[in-house]
């Protein structure tokens, strides 16, 4: 960046920055800082504009929606829209939110525990075929969930378990990425000496894992939980294939189904929009609540 800046600007900048050089360890030119800021501002706008649009659109009445400027408020009807959403078809939307919370919340929690146990075991115990096992699991990271949906459907059909909670819940418990991260993290953060000490103190293997290892692995576990929570919450294809009973739908599938009915009932569009707004709130809350852990988890896990 500095190479392309005109000379006078550079010297003037150097003089100005010179005063507080003591505070800043790394020197950077005004130009590079401005450009970096500009890029970040553009990126921020790029990501936030759709959410802003969603918020504005959710707050409009049906007629204002098509007739007023899309990025600014008209008559504020957000709460009317939410009331209409909750009123439609006996509050089926709330049921979908509950289903999503169940699939994603409980699913991610169990998936995290399973992944942590598997990763810890692979990291801390030596047994025949350990690397082979780990590599197979690692291969699972590469298989997109969508590619597995149809085979899973045929498998669940064999046991007559399609269109049940289990059809969506059980596949959600598997997180190859979680096992991978757990292994890496356990190897780095759980010293063998501590495990030995726990054993000498008389703790069984299970107790050692739950009382000692999980504490040390906490940042990684939060990361796994968040990843898995988001993955399950946004998983759309599996429920689409598995579920036919409206009362089992997660919120993503429910909104999609409504959206395909727009040509039949144009009014439903308002419900899809306000429903989309409400459906991202749990994700935002989860992120805000856990992002501290995620940052440290990613940094330490990724750098190792």
């Amino acid at each position: 960046m500095t190479a392309t800046s005109p000379r006078p600007a550079k010297t003037e900048k150097a003089r100005r920055v010179g005063r507080d050089t003591a505070h800043s360890g790394i020197r950077e030119s005004a130009a590079s800082r401005t450009i970096a800021m500009a890029v970040m501002i553009v990126a921020t706008l790029y990501f936030l504009t759709p959410i802003w649009w969603l918020l504005v659109a959710s707050s409009k009445t049906r007629s204002d929606f098509t007739t007023t400027a899309p990025l600014w408020f008209a008559d504020f009807a957000l709460f009317d829209n939410i009331a209409a959403l909750f009123d439609y078809r006996n509050a089926v939307f709330l049921r979908w939110l509950g289903n999503s919370a169940l699939y994603a919340g409980v699913g991610a929690l169990l998936a995290t525990i399973i992944a942590a146990m598997a990763g810890y075991a692979i990291a801390k115990y030596s047994f025949r075929g350990r690397e082979l096992l780990f590599n197979i699991i690692l291969g699972g990271v590469l298989v997109p969930a969508t590619a597995l949906a149809l085979p899973l459907f045929l498998l669940f059909s064999q046991v007559g378990a399609t269109n049940t909670i289990w059809a969506v819940f059980l596949p959600s418990l598997v997180s190859p990425f979680g096992v991978y991260l757990s292994r890496i993290y356990a190897a780095a953060s759980v010293p063998d000496e501590i495990v030995e000490a726990a054993r000498i103190d008389g703790a069984g293997e299970v107790r050692t894992f739950f009382t000692v290892a999980t504490r040390l692995m906490a940042p990684a576990l939060v990361t796994i939980f968040l990843f898995q929570f988001v993955a399950i919450w946004n998983n759309f294809f599996l429920p689409l294939i598995m579920l036919r009973d409206e009362s089992l739908f997660p919120v993503t599938l429910g909104l999609y189904v409504w959206n395909t009915q727009v040509s039949q009932i144009p009014d439903i569009r308002a419900l899809v929009i306000v429903g989309s707004l409400l459906s991202i709130i749990p994700l935002i809350l989860t992120f805000l609540g856990l992002q501290r852990f995620w940052q440290s988890g990613l940094a330490s896990g990724g750098l190792k």
Binding site: L132, N135, I136, L138, G139, G140, L142, V143, A147, L148, P151
Partner: peptide, 11 residues
Amino acid sequence: MAITTVARAGA
């Protein structure tokens, strides 16, 4: 390993 898993899913 990874390759065979993918291949199997693809198949």
